[in-house]
Each structure stands twice: as structure tokens, then as C-alpha cells.
Computed example of a mutant assay.
Amino acid sequence: MTVFKHIAIIGLGLIGSSAARATKAYCPDVTVSLYDKSEFVRDRARALNLGDNVTDDIQDAVREADLVLLCVPVRAMGIVAAAMAPALKKDVIICDTGSVKVSVIKTLQDNLPNHIIVPSHPLAGTENNGPDAGFAELFQDHPVILTPDAHTPAQAIAYIADYWEEIGGRINLMSAEHHDHVLALTSHLPHVIAYQLIGMVSGYEKKSRTPIMRYSAGSFRDATRVAASEPRLWQDIMLENAPALLPVLDHFIADLKKLRTAIASQDGDYLLEHFKESQKARLALKTDHDIHP
């Protein structure tokens, strides 16, 4: 059972609204205070009864909290941290859910130097967003990565781990640097590819003035699903994780060039070997739990 009695959730998109629902479902004795900068989102959160208190003031939301869960875009972390700082209790624990860790940790530490920060990243999601998109089961059996540093109190790490496990997550620990490299490969690059692929095909369609995407089958839809995700959110993620993403993107481009050369030179042996290795890796992935963005 979580030790937290009052949790403030800041940002009520998919992750924040799901955390609110999950906390109410699996930790019913916890008081949940909610804030989002959007008046429309706050009104929806009230209508959906997502928390015990939906406030128009971020400081009111965090004032009594012993855990503040930051579910805002990575480039909004500093603004949010500065805005709530004067109202935070001394012993409150701050936990972000951002998809980038190195830059976010620095931002939070700069803005909240006297508070305990336990960075986290739940590897769960869909391409949908907003308070209506969330659901209590989102985190069930999905990894939640914690990236504390050497100065993070062990007790605080344990408290955050217990909370995420209480609402369904599976805890993994790693360094912030390793997290950003791993997510550049498994999440950020796939989003780059999806946005680019559907953008390219859409461009062909507009230029040729003939229907193309109406003939897309499952493979195209599967490959571009995450391109329906919120563009500003992913703009922030790409730019914040550029140090880890750019080398990965360069590697991917180099591999594409090898494939192009093989196709142009009719090198069927190279293609077959490459496709076999890729198929083997994908089939192995099916034996694990599929996770979304």
C-alpha cells in the first residue's frame, strides 16, 4: 500500500488523467488534487470526476501534497516547477513522467534545489491524448523506468516504486543517460519514422492529385499509428533528446543507404539475410509484453 496520503497530478493528458483514474481505482484512500493550465481540460476533469479537487491554481493543487506527479510536456517542466515551488511542502517528493530524462532532471533540480526528485517514465500510452483518453488500466504490467541519481534517498525511491507498482507498473532502474539512449531507439526514432512516412505519402498524394492513402493496408496503418500523437509533445521530446536521438537517426539513415544499395545492385543475399535477422528479432519481441509509445 502506498505511503502517500495526498497526491497532486499536474497535467491531465493521457498519462496524467490515467494516473488520476488509476490512483482512485487502486489507492482509494489517497486524496487526489489535479491541475492543468487549460481551462477546458480542467472543466473536463471535473465533469469526469477524475479527482477529489480540480483547482484553477497550481499552488493550491500542490500545497498539501506529499507526492507531486508531473505529467506535462518535457519542455514545460521548468515553468511548472517554478510556478509551484513556493507552495510545496518541505518533505514532498517530486516525480516526473517525461520521455526524456537527462535534460528534465537538470531542469527540475535547477528549479527545485531543496526538494527530493525521483524521475520516472511509465512506458505506456496510446496515440490519443487529453483527459477523455485516459483509463485506469493504462499502466497494468507495463514497465516504469526510474532514473534516480546517487543523491536520491533510497527511501524516496522505494516510495515511488511502491506507488507505481500499486497502480500496475513494473519497476526498472537505470541511469538517465542510458534511458535516453534506449528510448531514442525504441520510441523516439519510431515516431520520427511514422511522422515522416505518412508525411511523405501524403505529399505524394497531394502532388499527384490522385488517391493513394485510401489503398493503405494494415502494414501502413501499423507503421504510422503513432503519427496520430500530439505533435507539440513530440516536438519537445525530439528536441530535448537530440543528443541521444541524432546518433541513432544517423545510424538508421546509414542502414537505409545500405538497403538502397542492395536493392539497386540486386543483392538478394544481403536483403534476405537482413530480413531474416529482423524477422527473428520481431518474433522474439512478440514473446514479451507489447508496450505502446
Rank of each mutant, 00 (worst) to 15 (best):
A22H: 06
D56Q: 13
Y159H: 15
Y26A: 13
Y215A: 09
L197G: 05
E240G: 05
P153T: 10
V62P: 00
H191Y: 13
R21Y: 02
G168V: 08
D255F: 08
D91S: 14
H179E: 02
P119S: 15
Y215Q: 07
A76M: 09
I10R: 01
Y163L: 07
N172Q: 13
T210S: 04
D267E: 06
G203S: 13
Q155V: 13
L183I: 15
T23R: 03
Y163H: 05
K257D: 10
T152Q: 01
P211R: 09
H274W: 10
R214H: 10
L67E: 04
A244P: 01
K89M: 14
M84A: 13
D141C: 06
I198M: 09
Q279F: 04
R42G: 02
Y204V: 03
P148M: 11
A228D: 14
D60H: 12
Q140W: 11
R232N: 09
D56K: 13
G168I: 06
N49D: 12
I212A: 01
I94N: 02
I167Q: 01
T224H: 09
S278L: 07
T97M: 13
A82Q: 14
D236S: 10
C27F: 03
E166S: 15
A45E: 02
A281P: 00
H191K: 05
P119M: 12
L259W: 07
L246K: 12
F220M: 15
V226R: 03
G125N: 04
S219H: 11
V72G: 07
V192S: 03
Y35T: 05
I253H: 01
V248N: 00
V62I: 08
R75S: 09
I157W: 00
L146K: 06
N49C: 11
L88K: 06
R21L: 15
A47W: 04
Y204P: 00
R221C: 09
V92I: 12
Q279S: 13
L189P: 05
A61M: 07
N129D: 12
I160K: 01
N111V: 06
Q140R: 15
L70I: 14
F4G: 02
Y26T: 09
P243Y: 12
A158M: 11
A8H: 03
I93W: 02
N129M: 04
A45L: 07
D236W: 05
S103I: 10
K24H: 08
L197I: 12
K280P: 00
A19Q: 10
A244Y: 06
H142R: 15
A133M: 07
Y195H: 04
G199I: 11
D141V: 05
K24A: 13
H142P: 00
D60A: 15
V54C: 08
L233H: 04
A47S: 13
